[in-house]
């Protein structure tokens, strides 16, 4: 009896870190070499390829935590419990997103420290300050973009397709698989205007100190404008969606 309980507890002790390793860490690390090798071969003169993709993919991993999605609760009908709380629905899901973000941030930092133990990080104080300045916009816009897609589930049965489309678009327009400078000039201009770049590209180039202070100020205003626009759209979308949502038991 005691032996079987001990055995199951030991199993549990190892199971959770193992599942986390398999589910979050291993796919993230495994995804890194392909864009790095591809672009190192295509642009051998660019010495920042490895660091660009390391930072952009880490940023994307941190800013888009999977458990913060609401679609599952919408389908289950369990989303109705949030209506009982004395806070707005959007503030609840944002605070939940922030909670997961802190966990991801901790793991992301741990990973960067691990990498820093092996190689010297090319991060200057100035680059780090620029990154800190732009991070609120990256967090806010990543949340809004994914939440807008998730809010589609208040109308449709299949929100997964839209989420995958956003992830695929992020490969291209957020700079997960290529730097935005690598795109043809017209596409680059579009990508630089859209808010997707805040999910991966901006944090990475800010950390690498590839942005001048003038560019940082322009991006700050751009981020603020997108936050206001997407925030307003999200609010409208959510209010209309929640009115449309027929909860369990109603």
């Amino acid at each position: 009896m005691i032996f079987s309980i001990t055995k199951s507890e030991i199993k549990r002790l190892f199971a959770y870190p193992l599942i986390f390793f398999l589910r979050e860490f291993l796919p993230f690390v495994a995804a890194l070499p392909v864009p790095v090798l591809l672009w190192q071969n295509a642009t051998p003169s660019d010495t920042q390829v490895f660091w660009y993709f390391l930072f952009s993919m880490t940023a994307y991993q941190i800013f888009t935590p999977e458990p913060a999605y609401i679609s599952r609760e919408v389908y289950d009908g369990t989303v109705t419990r949030y209506f009982l709380y004395p806070h707005s629905f959007s503030s609840i899901i944002f605070s939940r997103y922030l909670g997961y973000l802190v966990c991801q941030l901790f793991l992301g930092l741990l990973f960067i420290i691990l990498v820093a133990a092996l190689w010297q990080l090319p991060v200057t104080l100035e680059g780090f300050l620029k990154f800190l300045l732009l991070t609120p916009f990256c967090v806010g816009l990543s949340f809004l973009l994914f939440s807008l897609v998730e809010a589609v589930t208040l109308w449709l049965e299949d929100g997964w397709t839209f989420r995958v489309i956003l992830e695929v678009v992020a490969i291209f327009l957020a700079g997960r698989f290529l730097k935005l400078e690598h795109l043809p000039s017209i596409v680059e201009a579009v990508a630089q205007t859209l808010p997707f770049k805040f999910m991966a590209y901006i944090p990475s180039v800010a950390l690498l100190n590839n942005l001048s202070w003038f560019e940082v100020s322009v991006i700050t205003f751009q981020g603020l404008a997108w936050l206001l626009v997407l925030g307003y759209v999200f609010r409208l979308f959510l209010n209309e969606g929640l009115r449309h949502f027929s909860a369990f038991g109603s």
Partner: peptide
């Protein structure tokens, strides 16, 4: 969805070959 995936993959390689033959 798949069309977006195929297009983005094609676009990535198209961009790569803008820099090298």
């Amino acid at each position: 969805m798949d069309l977006v995936y195929y297009s983005s993959l094609f676009a990535v390689y198209y961009s790569v070959y803008l820099f090298t033959d």
